[in-house]
Design a protein around this nucleic acid. Structure first.
Length: 307
DNA sequence: AAACCGTGGTG
DNA sequence: TCACCAAGGTT
């Protein structure tokens, strides 16, 4: 039997316990899993790819309409690659972290160049795409191609921290032990593993939530190490929270919001409205956006989304 | 490896 | 109300 030590707690991962976990979570998912558009039959690997990038740090509820719009307008990688990066940024609307739109556009171009216009199946090929890290590569391998890949997102981390390790929350940053544990929990069969991955994510998203977990409806409450320990409070290192007001992120966001509204270039004077108080700061942010490729500087001190 | 990168909902 | 949080990635 496998025994894994994680953050102090040693948890029994016997085949019997594992089989029970799998059965409970998968049965729950069949009943309670959401009918998200990209989970429907017939969704292309490209559709899955787009959904995964959009879902990076953005709640699924806000992703749904954007995903519909994107996949309708750009049903294949070549369609997006043939359009301008600025259109990708405009269609991104207010999903946040607009560099993801740019990287999605770059990834589409890379698929056309290197992969015959298809989403690559190989994990290393996926990882080589811009905007694709360990999570997204594994998620696409699992959900688009039915492969056995270790998918570790914030939901998986939290569920496994509780059920297996007995702690309220995972560490502030992903540590190796968590990936090792996630792999140990994966069913052997490719298709089962892929389903297990979505099911655990869904459990974390709907039941085993960060703030107010609904342990009373959890299918594995009686097996949960955290539950059995009396739901002790989080004890790890402090989780630092991002500030927002007055940060470059806020200023950049306002500038981009202005540019998304029009197809006509804006003058520097018009852009000043985004952040009137601090000209130097505003100019630095605008320069940063140009540097990042989110904004194009045109002759005559004008600016627009990149053509 | 800590900090940065948006935006909106919520307990 | 206001931290906290959300299917992370990059530098």
């Amino acid at each position: 039997m496998a025994r894994l030590a994680d953050s102090g707690a040693v948890t029994d991962l016997s085949p019997t316990r594992l089989a029970t976990l799998h059965d409970r979570v998968l049965t729950w998912f069949d009943r309670a899993g959401r009918d998200l558009p990209w989970r429907r039959e017939g969704t292309t690997p490209w559709g899955v790819f787009v959904s995964e990038v959009m879902s990076q740090q953005t709640p699924v509820a806000r992703v749904v309409p954007a995903w519909e719009a994107w996949t309708t307008r750009w049903p294949a990688p070549a369609d997006l690659a043939a359009d301008s990066p600025g259109e990708a940024v405009r269609m991104w609307n207010r999903l946040g972290y607009p560099r993801r739109a740019l990287r999605l556009h770059e990834a589409a171009a890379a698929m056309v160049e290197r992969h015959d216009g298809e989403v690559p199946r190989d994990l290393d090929d996926l990882l080589a795409l811009p905007g694709v890290g360990a999570y997204t590569a594994a998620a696409v391998a699992a959900f688009a191609f039915g492969r056995r890949a270790t998918v570790v997102d914030t939901n998986v981390r939290r569920v496994e921290a509780r059920v297996v390790s007995g702690s309220a929350l995972p560490a502030p940053a992903l540590i190796r032990a968590e990936s090792t544990l996630a792999t140990a929990l994966l069913p052997e069969d490719d298709e089962d593993a892929a389903r297990w991955n979505v099911a655990v994510m869904e459990l974390g998203a709907l039941v085993c939530t960060a703030r107010a977990p609904q342990c009373d409806v959890c299918p594995v409450a009686d097996l949960c190490a955290w539950q059995l320990a009396g739901r002790p409070a989080y004890e790890g290192p402090a989780r630092r929270t991002q500030s927002w007001v007055g940060t470059d992120r806020q200023i950049r966001g306002r500038i981009l919001a202005l540019l998304r509204q029009t197809r006509d270039p804006l003058t520097a004077t018009e852009i000043a409205a985004a952040w009137p108080d601090d000209e130097a700061r505003r100019d630095r942010c605008l320069a940063g956006l140009v540097e990042d490729g989110l904004v194009e500087a045109l002759p005559g001190d004008r600016f627009a989304l990149p053509a």
